[in-house]
Amino acid sequence: MNDVIPPGRKDQHLDVVLAGRGRHARDAGFDAIRFVHEALPDLDHDKIDLGADFLGRRLKAPLLISSMTGGPARAEAINARLAEAAQHLGLALAVGSQRTAIEGVSSGGLDLNLRRRAPDTPILANIGASQLTRGFGLDEARRAVDMIGADALTIHLNPLQEACQPEGDRDWWGVGAALEALIRRLEIPVVVKETGAGLSGRTARRLIDMGAAAVDVAGAGGSNWALIEGERAADPADKAHAAAFADWGMPTARAIVDVRRACPEAVVIGSGGVRDGVDAARAVRLGADIVGQAAGLLKPATVSTEAVVEHFQRVTRQLRTVCFCTNSANLAQLRRAPLQPFD
């Protein structure tokens, strides 16, 4: 274990994802979900309501930008573009890990300029659960929230990544107890998310019982952080270790169903391998309140705010068309749309 983040690690992560490497060997499971097509909808396509409530704010669509950023110079531009796009489109924004910003190494654009760019956007701060037994506590959580004017704090669970990271934090003894203590004491909502291997219903139920305001299933089917760490490892033994976990985890579609069954009252975020608006609609139908995207945004976010806006306009248009072709005037009706039997 090494408590110091090696220089360039975040940039290496970004390079691997942008190069199309580190993808999960399994798909997210959405292709098995097929809606019954309605050939005679009684709707005006343009008047379909995609709005969703999240963290006390009304979103124009049930979409969350799950940010995943790299080194300081690139991260600042990426975060600015994501915030501007979220504000323009009425979406939610979750930033990447703020550990280095809290430790004073670099901010990566994670300061109050983010809130100024997105004054009406639900913004989620972010720290890692493993840090809660390594010096991070209530004060650091408040700093993460205050530095960007966040509405909530995301705490990410990444045991597989840490186990495959050469300098990873592999002692998780006491993390659950520290997490619950923080949730109980922090004054704003806490969202707990996985990072690509999926939440089970059992774990989600435990988190909701701790007081988590929402859970993000972050299932298998998108970025695989074991493989990403394997890509950047210099030691062949580390690479071989990570490669064995190419298909590890619970696919996103299954995770959403499992978590919704275990936590019928919870706010559930569905992320992990969401490719487009049709997948977003499938996630909503399976039980997600909000749908997150991360890796698919990195390329447009390295280009411009307009490229991010165009990406989400396409996703939103696709989601609206699914509603139209299932005769769903809003998301509540989409959640009851009939599905074709599984093959």
Rank of each mutant, 00 (worst) to 15 (best):
V322I: 14
Q293V: 12
V315T: 06
V315D: 00
A295L: 06
S304C: 12
A295Y: 04
T321C: 02
R282H: 08
V284H: 08
K299C: 04
S304I: 05
R285Q: 04
F312L: 06
A283G: 13
I290S: 05
R320Y: 12
I290R: 02
P300F: 08
I290K: 01
V303P: 08
G287P: 12
T321G: 00
E306Q: 15
D289Y: 02
I290N: 05
D289C: 06
E306L: 15
T316E: 07
V284P: 10
R285E: 10
R317Q: 14
G296W: 04
A281I: 10
V291A: 01
L297R: 10
R314W: 06
S304F: 12
T305F: 11
G287E: 10
R285K: 06
E310Q: 11
A281E: 09
K299W: 07
T305N: 11
D279N: 12
L319F: 03
E310N: 04
R285W: 14
R317G: 07
K299S: 08
T316K: 15
A280L: 06
A283V: 10
A288I: 07
A294V: 05
V291K: 00
F324H: 08
T302A: 14
A280Y: 13
D289V: 05
D279L: 02
G287A: 08
R282Y: 03
A307S: 15
A283L: 05
S304T: 15
Q318G: 13
F324K: 00
P300R: 12
A295S: 14
E306R: 14
V284Q: 04
